[in-house]
Amino acid sequence: MSEPMVEQLLDVTVTVNGRPRHARVPARRLLSDFLRHDVGLTGTHVGCEHGVCGACTVLVDGAPMRSCLMFAVTAQAYAVTTVEGLGSMDGLGPVQQAFLECHGLQCGFCTPGFLTTVTAFLCDNPDPTEGQAREAISGNLCRCTGYQNIVRSVLRAAELRAEAT
């Protein structure tokens, strides 16, 4: 038997939802796995691991990124926001509240990716048309809702954000 293949581990620290989070991980550790399995923030979901479904979308310095297409080591220079950073059970953020009101989720698996995507979108376009709302979510897959109530949720979230300011 040859020498066992042992992986080199790296000290990786990523700022997640405002807190520095550290783990010793191999260079190939995906940011999605780092968040889920090393940091224990399992709200970010993995639907395809090839960057198409968008379920794993997190905000990297405020911009939506597929955490399955990014290595944890690469994320060290940035501030990462996950679904857990968008609000809490007692204080839902406006996008979360809108999804609740508009039945914008069913199984909830793809939902965190939509929430982060919509959060970033509304920062850029706080008052979207219905067409723009639909366009904004058209890079995320949902198998349950048919998207109609997600489009409504985007528009409602825009209202809630406007009311809050």
Binding site: T42, H45, G108
Partner: peptide, 17 residues
């Protein structure tokens, strides 16, 4: 409105993985 949603909307879902 759905009772499961606040949990699912805040990353509190508990799926298999």
């Amino acid at each position: 409105r759905r009772r499961e949603d606040p949990r699912l909307l805040t990353g509190g879902g508990r799926y298999l993985d």
